[in-house]
Design a protein around this nucleic acid. Structure first.
Lengths: 143, 143
DNA sequence: GCTACATCCTGTAGTCACTACAGGATCAAG
DNA sequence: CTTGATCCTGTAGTGACTACAGGATGTAGC
């Protein structure tokens, strides 16, 4: 008769949970230091011990980071997903704000891309004295 | 009889060149400290004095930063645009590498945007116990 | 001349999200 | 019993700034 949340992944070292979740060992300790993650159990020799719950949370954090959430946003998401009472609306609000951020960044980068690409296209590649790339950066060049 | 490179913008204080170029005062001093910019002349009282040449360079740096060039890339561009001998090919190479970076970032962000938007769309906004946003982040949630 | 206030100076520390060490303890295998 | 891997704590470095502390000037009004 196994525990309800038990899995094959209990009793891991920090190296094992790092392997399992793909999060760097130093990063895991860093997350603990800034209190993004609660301090785990310790073995008699002082080493950290992780279980399946910890690995689930850590995987969540990693996925959120990959999606570009800041650690503060993740902190909020963890609180909301925490002790029941998770309000889907609040989670959606955080995610929506983040989506707006992403869209603004994409729009900015696209403008940059067009400008830079057009400029480079005008570039002969020879050792011409006036370079269009330098020109576009240096508005006052032709003074 | 005025000097060849003289303009109305000579003999500025750091506050004035900051105003003119839109670069923060602290940032200008920071650029000097990391040797992105050469140390300017000083007045008898020790204050920095800038002229039109400095403001041209600083505007170039600002524009390059807006286009997302790193300070190291800008350092290289300044060297290339520096004492004549500017090879347009080298400038184009730096800009092209940077353009590749920008395109990769856009592509990454677009993937994120699609994933996040689709997830949020599945969100009812009610206080449903299983939130699609948390679900997609927390792969093992339904254990 | 005096008083305010703005502007300048240097130098240090904080931001974000890590990463990289230094210097030591402990463990597992041969 | 030695070697090498893994772990521990703590500090410092990254990029590109920003913010402040604490002090020295400059400028304007009275």
């Amino acid at each position: 008769m196994r525990g309800i949340t038990a899995s094959r992944a209990d009793g891991m070292t920090i190296g094992q949970i790092s392997e399992l979740t793909g999060v760097n060992i130093e990063t895991i300790r860093y997350y603990e230091k800034i209190r993004l993650l609660p301090p785990p159990l310790r073995a008699a020799n002082g080493r950290r011990i992780y279980g399946s719950t910890e690995s689930r949370v850590l995987a969540f954090v990693r996925r959120s980071r990959e999606l570009g959430f800041s650690l503060d946003e993740i902190r909020a998401l963890l609180r909301l997903g925490g002790p029941g009472k998770a309000s889907c609306r609040e989670v959606r609000d955080i995610a929506t704000l983040h989506l707006d951020d992403i869209r603004a960044k994409i729009s900015d980068l696209r403008k940059l891309e067009r400008l830079l690409a057009a400029t480079i296209a005008r570039c002969s590649g020879t050792t011409a004295p006036d370079c269009p790339v330098l020109d576009i950066l240096d508005v006052q060049r032709r003074n």
